[in-house]
C-alpha cells in the first residue's frame, strides 16, 4: 500500500442517510406507464368515433399540461409538467366526454381539473378527489345537455342511447350484443366503450406493478355480484352481471380512476375496501339512482372516505397481536 493519495479531506465525499440505493421507479415513470396503458382505449376510440375523438384527446392533454405549467408559474412553484400527471388527467377527462361534445367543454374541464381540483390543494399528491372525475362532475352539473342523454353511436353520425340507459329503461332502443359491448361498438363517452382495450391497458398496469390488482378486482367483482343479485326483474339472482360489467364506465373507472394513487388508500386492505365500496355505490346508482351510470360518483364518494378506510385498515405491526389502535 504505497500510495496514500486517496486520503480525502472532509467535504469531498457526499454524505447522506441510508439507503444509498433507490429503486428505478420514479413518479414520472409511473405516470407515463398510465399514459401508455391508456393508449389502446384511445386508439379504439379514434377507430369507433373518428378523428374528432383524437382532436378532443389532444385538446384535453394540451390544456391540462398548459394549465399546470401556468398555475405553477403563477404561484412560483417548480414546473412539474414532465411528470406526466397532468397529461394523464387531461386524457382521462377527454375520455369522459362524448365525441360530439363542444371543444370548449374539454378545455374548461381540463382547466377546472388542474387549476381548481389539483393545484388549489397543492398539486400532485395533495388533491383529495380525483381531478378528472371531479371535472367531469363539474361539467355534468354545469352543462348537462352535453353529458347526459344521447351519445354518438360508433361508426355513424347519428346519436343514440347508451347501453346502460337502455337497460335502465330511461331510453328506448335495443341492447347491443355482448361482443359489441366487449369490443366497444356501442354509444358512450370517448374512452369507456371498449372493454377489451381498457382490459389490455389495465392488465398491463397490473403486470408492470404500477397498480394494485385489489382495487379493480374488488370493484368489478362487487358490481358483478350485486348486479347479478339485484339487477334482474324476475327476483333475486336474475340480473345480468356480464352486461353490467362490460357496459358503461366500469372498466375505465375500475382500472384507471379508482386506482389513482393520490385519492385511494395506501393500505392493501384499504384498497380492497375502496373497490368494494365503489362497487356498492355504483350498483346503487345504476339500479335505483337517478342516473343510468354511477361509476364516477361512486369513486368520488369513496375518495372522500379514504382517510377513514386508512384508519380502519392499518396493517398489523410486527410483534403485536392486532392492528394498532
Amino acid at each position: 500500500m504505497a500510495d496514500k493519495n486517496i486520503l480525502l479531506s472532509e467535504g469531498e465525499l457526499l454524505v447522506s442517510s441510508s439507503p444509498h440505493i433507490r429503486a428505478e421507479e420514479t413518479v414520472d415513470w409511473l405516470m407515463w406507464q398510465v399514459v401508455i396503458a391508456l393508449l389502446p382505449a384511445a386508439i379504439s376510440s379514434v377507430y369507433f368515433f373518428g378523428f374528432r375523438s383524437l382532436f378532443l384527446m389532444v385538446l384535453g392533454v394540451a390544456t391540462a399540461v398548459l394549465t399546470e405549467a401556468a398555475v405553477e408559474k403563477a404561484l412560483g412553484k417548480e414546473i412539474t409538467i414532465k411528470d406526466g400527471s397532468a397529461a394523464v388527467t387531461g386524457l382521462l377527462l377527454a375520455f369522459n366526454v362524448p365525441a360530439n361534445a363542444p371543444w370548449w367543454l374539454v378545455v374548461l374541464g381540463a382547466i377546472f381539473a388542474i387549476a381548481v381540483v389539483k393545484q388549489t390543494f397543492g398539486g400532485l399528491g395533495y388533491n383529495f378527489v380525483n381531478p378528472a372525475l371531479t371535472a367531469r362532475a363539474f361539467l355534468l352539473a354545469a352543462w348537462p345537455q352535453y353529458l347526459a342523454g344521447n351519445f354518438p353511436l360508433p361508426l355513424d353520425t347519428i346519436t343514440g342511447a347508451t347501453p346502460l340507459a337502455i337497460l335502465d329503461g330511461t331510453a328506448a332502443g335495443t341492447l347491443p350484443s355482448y361482443l359489441d359491448l366487449f369490443l366497444g361498438n356501442v354509444g358512450g363517452v370517448l374512452g369507456e366503450t371498449s372493454a377489451l382495450a381498457l382490459l389490455v391497458g389495465g392488465l398491463y398496469l397490473i403486470w408492470q406493478k404500477v397498480i394494485d390488482w385489489r382495487t379493480p378486482v374488488a370493484f368489478i367483482g362487487t358490481v358483478a355480484v350485486l348486479s347479478w343479485a339485484f339487477g334482474g326483474n324476475g327476483g333475486l339472482f336474475t340480473g345480468d352481471p356480464l352486461y353490467h360489467v362490460l357496459a358503461g364506465g366500469l372498466m375505465l373507472g375500475a382500472f384507471f380512476m379508482a386506482t389513482d394513487y393520490v385519492t385511494s388508500p395506501v393500505t392493501p386492505k384499504g384498497r380492497l375496501g375502496f373497490g368494494v365500496g365503489c362497487g356498492i355505490i355504483t350498483v346503487l346508482i345504476r339500479l335505483w339512482g337517478g342516473y343510468p351510470e354511477g361509476v364516477s360518483y361512486s369513486i368520488l364518494l369513496m375518495n372522500l372516505l379514504v382517510p377513514f378506510l386508512e384508519r380502519w385498515t392499518v396493517p398489523r405491526v410486527y410483534g403485536t397481536k392486532s392492528a394498532q389502535a
Binding site: 394494485d212 394513487y261 393520490v262 385511494s264 395506501v266 384498497r271 392499518v314 396493517p315 405491526v317
Partner: peptide, 15 residues
C-alpha cells in the same frame, strides 16, 4: 403521491 409502495415494503407493517 400516496402510491402505497412503502406500506407494502415495510417488513414491520408500518405506514
Amino acid at each position: 403521491i400516496r402510491c402505497g409502495r412503502c406500506v407494502d415494503a415495510c417488513p414491520i407493517g408500518l405506514i
